[in-house]
Write a protein that binds this DNA or RNA. Structure first.
Ligand SMILES: [Mn+2]
Ligand SMILES: [Mn+2]
Ligand SMILES: [Zn+2]
Ligand SMILES: [Zn+2]
Lengths: 138, 138
DNA sequence: TCAAGATCTGGACTGAGTCAAGAAAAAGAT
DNA sequence: ATCTTTTTCTTGACTCAGTCCAGATCTTGA
């Protein structure tokens, strides 16, 4: 289950060294950018192209193996914590991102008061504020 | 109140032709991009630089006269409906953006179950789904 | 083992937005 | 009304995150 090779195979994704390394990097560094993941992968397998990183991240995301978060004004972030629709708090000062479970319930805000006839499939929630460290030093 | 000149002056913002035109454009075309706003402004006053549009939008946003929305994978959108913390539904197919009031209340989700010590100042909620038109044609 | 198909590489390219320096315009004080 | 100071606007280069493409390489399954 946590063996990347098995995980990829179970999802019908051809197993490549690059994909394994990208998945390991996302596991090791939650909420990190494609760029940070590329660096981590290079440290572990020596080299990978920027494009292969983006391709792997896109494939893993589309298979539900990882999750993409796209906060305003920052590049996309990736994490392996999927399937529990948790949300995120981001520090406006230092960018630190933390997980948060919504008080409302398992699938918060999925029903809107007036949905204008839309069929809603996802509620994206991002909290903005200041992290403990930045609060302390101010 | 709805006179742009007065509105700007009340907020201590120097009144310029560009700012008035940008504010009018945002009023006329809610949920539109900086680019669309620039086109609208050019149609109305003849010319404006890209930078002046970004500057005006930033100033108006910082004064709370307009609001910036930054949906994942799309350029920022602007609107004049401020002060009522409403949220948005975006169609994955055609990009149409509609206003929505959250079922939870006036300030939905502002308190998270476990905030990890963060001081939260904003909850950004974006619903994703399919609009009535796109539902019909599928 | 081999063919067919998918993936990876390298490099050019795009879109949204920012930076910086000088020209133009607005505000405040005669 | 005019001048001075300060802010804003223009122009054009530049950055960053991400995409597109063509050819080389690797995975898979027969
Ligand atoms: Mn997370
Ligand atoms: Mn709106
Ligand atoms: Zn912080
Ligand atoms: Zn639609």
């Amino acid at each position: 289950m946590s063996d990347p090779t098995v995980l990829l195979r179970n999802h019908g994704v051809p197993v490549t060294a690059q994909r394994i390394a990208v998945l390991n990097a996302v596991t090791k560094l939650p909420h990190s950018t494609a760029d940070t993941i590329a660096e981590e992968v290079r440290a572990s397998i020596g080299a990978i192209s920027k494009q292969a990183v983006y391709d792997a991240l896109a494939t893993l995301t589309s298979k539900g193996i990882i999750r993409r978060i796209q906060p305003a004004g920052s590049p996309a972030l990736f994490e392996t914590r999927v399937g529990d629709n948790h949300h995120h708090i981001i520090c406006r000062t230092c960018g630190t991102t933390a997980d948060v479970d919504c008080a409302v319930g398992e699938r918060p805000c999925l029903s809107a008061a007036d949905n204008s006839g839309f069929k809603i499939d996802e509620a994206e929630v991002i909290f903005w504020g200041t992290c403990p460290d930045c609060l302390a030093s101010s």
